[in-house]
Amino acid sequence: MAAGGDHGSPDSYRSPLASRYASPEMCFVFSDRYKFRTWRQLWLWLAEAEQTLGLPITDEQIQEMKSNLENIDFKMAAEEEKRLRHDVMAHVHTFGHCCPKAAGIIHLGATSCYVGDNTDLIILRNALDLLLPKLARVISRLADFAKERASLPTLGFTHFQPAQLTTVGKRCCLWIQDLCMDLQNLKRVRDDLRFRGVKGTTGTQASFLQLFEGDDHKVEQLDKMVTEKAGFKRAFIITGQTYTRKVDIEVLSVLASLGASVHKICTDIRLLANLKEMEEPFEKQQIGSSAMPYKRNPMRSERCCSLARHLMTLVMDPLQTASVQWFERTLDDSANRRICLAEAFLTADTILNTLQNISEGLVVYPKVIERRIRQELPFMATENIIMAMVKAGGSRQDCHEKIRVLSQQAASVVKQEGGDNDLIERIQVDAYFSPIHSQLDHLLDPSSFTGRASQQVQRFLEEEVYPLLKPYESVMKVKAELCL
């Protein structure tokens, strides 16, 4: 049975990233139509530049190519590739079939990587351009969430054990800070992308030097003109047959890092959902379990974690691919890159769409948070109580021993009897502590235990987050809708 299948058929496997999760716009960027249309555009740009620099290419040939950029006979191309065992030459023939007058000058002087690699770089750039505003929107939604809850005390956790208090907004800023680093890295790697350009079979530009009869300047002009037509500021000066596969490492490393950030955020949300302090959106008709109707599973956060793990592992592909590119190139890269580049971007696209949807509907339960604080705060307040007693004339050592005994009794009630923490009640009825009984409410005010959390939130948002989001103001209103 021949390899390949009808990918629109229910009898043929289709990647869930495309069929179930990723956005239509990201799927289109990695589609065959987008790819092969870009090949034709690159052939047109090459012909236009070659004509401008004096090669015998007519206006009629150029116009014929322009008129057929979208006229792609995919069936013919597939048949040609089956016959020739070469995808680029299959599309040269297919393009030439609908451009008979231009057929002889299509791909003039070029090698397969002229269309293959340059198209990949265009796709990487455009895919990054799709991700950047999506990530900015996630940051914006979380920034709104953090600002609104900047002063809401909550129990902090280290080692997932109760620690000092923080605020809900401050905790959210930990998430935002990681995503801001990801946004900066995505922008950097996007701006650092260079075009492969017009380089020939081993990167020496020998074929173009021959076409222009040894004119170095025209060869350099050709490279520059096509690079500018493709919208790049610069091209690699040095290439082998391909652009260095280190570029793929750079791009997928940034995406993998984004995956790590999203995994951490969504894990926190899942843990908070278990504590009943916070939940992701839950639709009115949504079913959490087929057997347990009360369940409210954090399905979206779980999906993000599941896909983020996949995204983090994909960076190993370009690392290994770059390491086995012998001399000017081997074909070890080809099949692998067809999979890992598309999957990385479709996965990143999915987790950003999902995280935006989550961040637009996060639900906080202040009463649950308050109750958990009441359970733990008495123990945390013991040092403040000791200091207040010393100020009232008591002995630190005597007070410490009193607190120690009462704390152990209260802990026994919590752990052995399943009761509430009654340390404060014990202190309130103990005559030894009568000098500070009137101060206990103040000493137990949760806001006095959150330090500068709310001020940190305000400063972080104003100095770091809002300036970073400013270039994306025009796209901030787009909502994230999930079908599944």
Rank of each mutant, 00 (worst) to 15 (best):
residue 452 R to V: 10
residue 321 T to M: 13
residue 146 A to E: 01
residue 135 L to H: 08
residue 110 A to I: 05
residue 280 E to F: 02
residue 103 A to F: 07
residue 290 S to M: 01
residue 338 R to C: 01
residue 392 A to H: 13
residue 369 I to K: 04
residue 434 S to P: 05
residue 413 V to H: 13
residue 306 S to C: 03
residue 199 K to T: 06
residue 452 R to W: 05
residue 275 L to E: 05
residue 471 P to R: 15
residue 70 E to G: 12
residue 91 H to Q: 15
residue 453 A to C: 11
residue 275 L to R: 09
residue 445 D to E: 12
residue 143 A to D: 03
residue 84 L to M: 07
residue 42 L to R: 02
residue 50 E to K: 05
residue 473 E to S: 15
residue 40 R to S: 01
residue 24 P to V: 11
residue 23 S to H: 13
residue 327 F to K: 03
residue 478 V to R: 15
residue 477 K to V: 15
residue 11 D to R: 13
residue 319 L to A: 00
residue 66 K to N: 15
residue 109 G to V: 00
residue 404 R to L: 09
residue 187 K to N: 09
residue 162 P to K: 00
residue 439 Q to F: 06
residue 323 S to G: 08
residue 431 A to G: 11
residue 115 V to R: 01
residue 469 L to D: 02
residue 45 W to G: 14
residue 426 R to W: 07
residue 259 G to T: 04
residue 215 D to N: 13
residue 452 R to A: 13
residue 233 K to N: 14
residue 47 A to F: 03
residue 471 P to C: 15
residue 11 D to M: 09
residue 117 D to H: 03
residue 442 H to G: 12
residue 119 T to R: 02
residue 441 D to G: 12
residue 26 M to S: 03
residue 379 F to Q: 03
residue 195 F to M: 14
residue 225 M to N: 07
residue 241 Q to N: 00
residue 484 L to H: 15
residue 100 P to R: 12
residue 175 W to I: 04
residue 71 N to T: 09
residue 298 P to F: 02
residue 98 C to R: 10
residue 183 L to W: 11
residue 343 E to T: 12
residue 19 S to G: 13
residue 406 L to V: 10
residue 424 I to A: 14
residue 23 S to T: 08
residue 215 D to L: 07
residue 426 R to E: 06
residue 10 P to L: 15
residue 140 S to V: 13
residue 406 L to P: 03
residue 255 L to I: 14
residue 57 I to H: 09
residue 284 K to W: 15
residue 442 H to A: 15
residue 194 R to L: 11
residue 237 I to L: 11
residue 420 D to V: 04
residue 299 M to R: 01
residue 374 R to P: 02
residue 334 S to T: 13
residue 235 A to E: 12
residue 155 L to K: 01
residue 86 H to M: 01
residue 448 S to E: 14
residue 239 T to S: 13
residue 277 E to W: 04
residue 176 I to C: 11
residue 47 A to G: 10
residue 301 S to F: 02
residue 153 P to T: 06
residue 162 P to T: 05
residue 99 C to V: 12
residue 385 I to G: 03
residue 234 R to L: 10
residue 28 F to I: 06
residue 158 T to H: 00
residue 406 L to E: 04
residue 261 S to F: 00
residue 366 P to G: 05
residue 461 L to D: 05
residue 476 M to A: 15
residue 120 D to V: 08
residue 10 P to S: 15
residue 239 T to M: 04
residue 117 D to L: 01
residue 344 A to V: 03
residue 332 D to H: 01
residue 56 P to N: 10
residue 271 L to V: 07
residue 269 I to Q: 04
residue 55 L to M: 12
residue 206 A to D: 03
residue 422 D to Y: 08
residue 367 K to W: 05
residue 413 V to S: 13
residue 375 Q to T: 04
residue 113 C to F: 00
residue 446 P to V: 04
residue 242 T to V: 13
residue 323 S to M: 09
residue 138 V to A: 13
residue 64 E to C: 10
residue 221 Q to N: 12
residue 77 A to V: 12
residue 400 H to F: 02
residue 203 G to Q: 01
residue 402 K to V: 06
residue 247 V to N: 07
residue 186 L to I: 11
residue 51 Q to C: 08
residue 169 G to Q: 03
residue 468 L to K: 15
residue 275 L to H: 09
residue 481 E to F: 07
residue 114 Y to R: 00
residue 147 K to T: 12
residue 15 S to A: 15
residue 179 L to F: 12
residue 467 P to E: 09
residue 52 T to M: 08
residue 464 E to M: 08
residue 211 L to R: 04
residue 121 L to V: 13
residue 271 L to M: 06
residue 115 V to T: 12
residue 7 H to S: 12
residue 70 E to K: 11
residue 148 E to A: 11
residue 137 R to S: 15
residue 55 L to S: 04
residue 284 K to N: 13
residue 147 K to W: 11
residue 147 K to E: 12
residue 280 E to G: 03
residue 100 P to I: 09
residue 405 V to H: 10
residue 251 V to I: 08
residue 385 I to S: 03
residue 385 I to Q: 01
residue 128 L to T: 10
residue 448 S to Y: 13
residue 469 L to Y: 08
residue 117 D to S: 02
residue 160 F to S: 07
residue 123 I to D: 02
residue 447 S to M: 13
residue 431 A to Y: 07
residue 12 S to G: 15
residue 60 E to M: 11
residue 363 V to I: 14
residue 346 L to Q: 11
residue 283 E to V: 10
residue 247 V to R: 05
residue 208 F to E: 02
residue 57 I to M: 05
residue 465 V to A: 09
residue 185 N to C: 13
residue 434 S to T: 13
residue 194 R to C: 13
residue 155 L to F: 06
residue 98 C to A: 12
residue 278 M to A: 06
residue 457 V to L: 06
residue 442 H to C: 11
residue 307 L to K: 09
residue 350 T to S: 14
residue 477 K to H: 08
residue 289 S to N: 01
residue 30 F to T: 06
residue 328 E to S: 02
residue 139 I to V: 12
residue 472 Y to G: 09
residue 235 A to P: 14
residue 76 M to K: 12
residue 477 K to G: 11
residue 473 E to L: 13
residue 11 D to C: 15
residue 18 A to T: 15
residue 65 M to T: 08
residue 276 K to D: 08
residue 129 D to R: 07
residue 261 S to V: 04
residue 53 L to P: 01
residue 271 L to I: 14
residue 310 H to W: 06
residue 225 M to A: 10
residue 171 R to G: 00
residue 308 A to E: 01
residue 124 L to I: 08
residue 363 V to G: 05
residue 286 Q to A: 03
residue 100 P to L: 09
residue 103 A to K: 14
residue 349 D to T: 10
residue 469 L to E: 03
residue 6 D to H: 00
residue 97 H to W: 12
residue 437 H to T: 09
residue 284 K to Y: 15
residue 53 L to W: 01
residue 470 K to M: 12
residue 40 R to C: 03
residue 333 D to F: 00
residue 86 H to F: 00
residue 438 S to P: 11
residue 128 L to N: 15
residue 379 F to I: 05
residue 80 E to M: 10
residue 33 R to F: 07
residue 28 F to S: 06
residue 293 P to N: 01
residue 450 T to M: 05
residue 125 R to S: 11
residue 458 Q to L: 11
residue 65 M to W: 01
residue 345 F to D: 03
residue 25 E to A: 14
residue 34 Y to S: 12
residue 162 P to S: 08
residue 405 V to I: 15
residue 303 R to T: 01
residue 370 E to L: 11
residue 51 Q to I: 07
residue 72 I to S: 07
residue 359 S to R: 14
residue 455 Q to P: 09
residue 154 T to K: 02
residue 242 T to A: 08
residue 89 M to R: 00
residue 49 A to I: 05
residue 381 A to Y: 08
residue 38 T to D: 00
residue 298 P to N: 02
residue 230 A to P: 00
residue 482 L to W: 08
